[in-house]
Amino acid sequence: MKGLTYLFKVLSWIVIAAIVAFLAIAAPILAGFHPVVVLSGSMEPALPVGSMIYYHTCNFEELKAGDVVTFRAENSLVTHRITAVNEVSRTVNTKGDGNSTEDPVPVEEDEIVGKAADFAIPYAGYFVTYGKEPAAIAGMAVILLVDYVLEKIYAGQKGEKKDENKNT
């Protein structure tokens, strides 16, 4: 019983560490940044697959060639670098750093959701993507619950042994 209690205590600390990591990854949201997981290699090596990047809203006038922007393309978000800004048509041309050619269609102002921050967290996207799975959330909850129950049982057994020692 003591070994099982110890195992679940260690697992609980791992779960608590994971929760703290989730909170740290989410912390930039408080400063107005929005997290996005890099899903493809189009921006490698600057933004490796699995990285967590953050973007913030911006005005079109703030954008310039070389900036990395996140924009809507069909039903997904894409993050690419601006190669040219057209003030007249209010569009930007974009290209993934890892791609050999520019994106075929200019991005319109209303499709741009934000400008990427200068920082990214490598591999954090894998962690967040897995951590959002219902099975992972349920598993963490079960570990914490079992640890709590075992702790209560073990504490109760310790109390009974103390009482037995006092009576003898």
Rank of each mutant, 00 (worst) to 15 (best):
residue 78 V to K: 00
residue 108 E to M: 13
residue 77 L to D: 09
residue 68 V to F: 14
residue 85 V to W: 07
residue 86 N to S: 11
residue 101 T to Y: 13
residue 64 K to S: 14
residue 60 F to A: 03
residue 71 F to L: 01
residue 92 V to N: 06
residue 110 D to R: 11
residue 63 L to Q: 08
residue 94 T to W: 04
residue 54 Y to H: 08
residue 106 P to I: 03
residue 66 G to N: 07
residue 53 I to R: 04
residue 50 G to M: 03
residue 107 V to A: 05
residue 78 V to W: 00
residue 51 S to V: 10
residue 80 H to S: 01
residue 94 T to D: 08
residue 90 R to D: 06
residue 45 P to V: 00
residue 114 G to D: 02
residue 77 L to V: 07
residue 110 D to E: 11
residue 93 N to P: 00
residue 85 V to I: 07
residue 53 I to E: 02
residue 43 M to Y: 02
residue 112 I to Q: 02
residue 82 I to K: 09
residue 103 D to E: 14
residue 105 V to I: 15
residue 108 E to S: 15
residue 69 V to P: 01
residue 63 L to W: 08
residue 83 T to F: 04
residue 65 A to H: 06
residue 109 E to C: 11
residue 111 E to G: 11
residue 45 P to H: 01
residue 101 T to C: 06
residue 81 R to F: 02
residue 68 V to N: 12
residue 43 M to G: 07
residue 114 G to H: 04
residue 65 A to W: 03
residue 111 E to T: 03
residue 70 T to S: 14
residue 79 T to I: 04
residue 78 V to A: 01
residue 47 L to D: 05
residue 108 E to N: 12
residue 92 V to M: 06
residue 46 A to L: 10
residue 74 E to A: 12
residue 52 M to K: 09
residue 62 E to T: 14
residue 72 R to C: 10
residue 104 P to V: 10
residue 98 G to W: 09
residue 48 P to N: 01
residue 47 L to W: 05
residue 113 V to E: 07
residue 101 T to R: 13
residue 68 V to D: 13
residue 115 K to I: 12
residue 113 V to D: 00
residue 94 T to Q: 08
residue 80 H to Q: 01
residue 100 S to V: 12
residue 106 P to H: 02
residue 96 G to P: 08
residue 71 F to S: 01
residue 65 A to F: 04
residue 67 D to C: 03
residue 92 V to T: 05
residue 97 D to K: 00
residue 68 V to K: 12
residue 51 S to P: 09
residue 46 A to Q: 14
residue 107 V to L: 05
residue 103 D to G: 06
residue 77 L to Q: 09
residue 74 E to G: 05
residue 71 F to A: 02
residue 87 E to Y: 11
residue 61 E to S: 15
residue 62 E to P: 09
residue 87 E to M: 14
residue 95 K to D: 02
residue 80 H to I: 04
residue 63 L to K: 06
residue 61 E to W: 03
residue 94 T to Y: 07
residue 61 E to N: 15
residue 83 T to P: 10
residue 97 D to N: 11
residue 74 E to T: 10
residue 45 P to R: 00
residue 60 F to G: 03
residue 61 E to M: 06
residue 59 N to M: 09
residue 57 T to F: 05
residue 52 M to E: 12
residue 51 S to L: 05
residue 73 A to T: 10
residue 78 V to D: 00
residue 105 V to T: 15
residue 98 G to S: 10
residue 102 E to Q: 15
residue 84 A to W: 07
residue 85 V to P: 15
residue 91 T to N: 06
residue 93 N to R: 13
residue 109 E to M: 14
residue 92 V to D: 07
residue 66 G to I: 07
residue 55 Y to F: 15
residue 46 A to K: 15
residue 87 E to I: 12
